[in-house]
Simulated assay, not measured.
Amino acid sequence: MKTIDWTKDELVAYILLFAANADFKESVAERNLIISKVDVETFKDIHEEFKLDNDYQGLKKIMTSLEQHNYDKDDIDLLLEDIKAIFFADGDFDITEQNMLLYLKRLFKTV
């Protein structure tokens, strides 16, 4: 895939949006948590891009951008903690979110 021209904040916003939508619904609590990590304008811009992508496109963008920003194991661990926080933000860590967390952990190990 070609390069992705995202800042680290844009990458974080996209990944957290991806996680927030794992159960096919995006709660206000999840949105607020994402906005606490990045500014509102970044959230809005990335949210528009996110809505246009399918899961495959989103994962390709995430993996490409993680590599471009040279994320290491510590960076990935921090990112996974933020993802867990998103999953718990609405008070319901359902089986879909649990499976998504396992999948993302495995996928991010390849970076």
Rank of each mutant, 00 (worst) to 15 (best):
M1K: 11
T3N: 15
I4T: 13
I4L: 08
I4W: 08
D5F: 13
W6E: 05
T7H: 03
T7D: 01
D9E: 13
L11W: 01
L11V: 03
V12L: 14
V12Q: 08
A13E: 07
Y14T: 08
Y14L: 15
I15E: 00
L16Y: 01
L17I: 03
F18N: 14
N21S: 12
N21C: 10
A22K: 07
D23Y: 09
F24V: 02
K25Y: 07
E26R: 09
E26K: 07
S27Q: 05
S27D: 05
A29M: 06
E30T: 09
E30P: 10
R31I: 14
N32S: 11
L33F: 15
I34D: 15
I35L: 09
S36I: 02
K37M: 06
V38N: 04
D39R: 03
V40R: 04
D45L: 10
H47S: 13
F50Y: 15
F50Q: 11
K51N: 12
N54F: 07
D55W: 08
Q57D: 13
G58S: 14
L59A: 12
K60V: 15
K61F: 01
I62D: 01
M63E: 06
M63K: 01
M63L: 11
S65C: 11
S65E: 00
L66E: 00
H69V: 04
H69K: 10
Y71M: 15
K73L: 08
K73E: 10
I76Q: 09
L78K: 15
L78G: 13
L79A: 05
E81K: 09
K84M: 13
A85W: 03
I86M: 02
G91V: 12
D92Y: 13
D92M: 11
D94L: 03
E97I: 03
Q98E: 15
Q98T: 11
N99A: 05
M100W: 04
M100Q: 12
M100N: 12
L101C: 06
L102E: 14
L102H: 10
L104H: 00
K105L: 02
R106Q: 08
L107C: 00
K109P: 02
T110H: 02
